[in-house]
């Protein structure tokens, strides 16, 4: 971990103010190396979701520093963080969060639209991303016409279409059966290995966390411990 892509130092997060204030993070220090596959675990209320929101540049810490690619994210405003997300981050959600009544390809193209790519480039990159998740033949299907596993793969295609540095996945297998879950995890593993995308994944299932190289355990607003998964670790290194 000589050159971490993500670096949190003494990050705290307080919701509300006065006597009702709730301290979700109590001083988190965390370094994540580029190309790592990280699983974030912990009981609800442990601060893992808050941390993921901060790492996803959706939220800012109340105090402490968050270095992402040498940007001090805690000093950036809303729109600057949006531009950072647009350029370097990809999101996969538990509930897939695809636009309904919109074809798989149009869903995947959406981030490129915001980047101002022209029609031809959007189509090419969109089809390439769908191909990568094995759904090139399903490009004109709407989410309603796809199974849950297929929807999540479209969502992953949307997240990687911009060739992001970091893929943030919030319980990506939470709504899927175990067979589909393993398919999705294998896909994430491939992306991590072949495209070198840093993957940050929240999960509460140890079976899924086993696919990761590093497992970060949260408890009571602090990082409890960081494990290295040797089985995967050997394969990566």
């Amino acid at each position: 971990m000589t050159d971490p892509i993500i670096s949190l130092r003494a990050v705290t997060k307080v919701y509300g103010s006065g006597p009702t204030a709730f301290q979700a993070l109590k001083g988190v220090d965390l370094d994540i190396a580029a190309g790592d596959f990280v699983a974030v675990m912990g009981p609800s209320g442990s601060g893992k979701s808050t941390t993921m929101n901060i790492l996803g540049c959706l939220d800012v810490p109340s105090a402490g520093t968050f270095l992402f690619r040498r940007h001090h994210v805690e000093t950036l405003d809303r729109d600057q963080r949006a531009l950072l997300r647009r350029k370097y981050l990809g999101f996969v959600f538990q509930g897939f969060n695809l636009l309904s009544r919109t074809s798989a390809l149009e869903n995947v193209e959406l981030p490129l639209l915001y980047r101002g790519d022209d029609r031809k480039r959007r189509r090419e990159a969109g089809m390439a991303a769908l191909d990568k998740v094995g759904l090139a033949d399903w490009w004109d299907h709407t989410p309603a016409e796809l199974s849950g596993g297929q929807q999540q793969r479209v969502a992953i295609a949307r997240a990687i279409v911009t060739r992001p540095d970091v893929l943030l996945a919030d319980e990506p297998t939470g709504n899927l059966d175990s067979e589909r879950s393993i398919e999705i995890m294998e896909l994430l593993t491939d992306l991590n290995r072949e495209s070198g995308i840093t993957v940050l994944m929240v999960t509460h299932e140890p079976e899924m966390a086993a696919f990761a190289h590093t497992v970060v355990h949260f408890k009571d607003g602090l990082v409890e411990r960081v494990d290295t998964n040797h089985r995967m670790g050997q394969e990566v290194s």
Partner: peptide
């Protein structure tokens, strides 16, 4: 609302 959330998450700025 959720659609707007998705758009914001994937990098739409407020003005867009």
């Amino acid at each position: 609302t959720r659609e707007i959330g998705i758009r914001l998450a994937i990098g739409a700025v407020a003005n867009e």
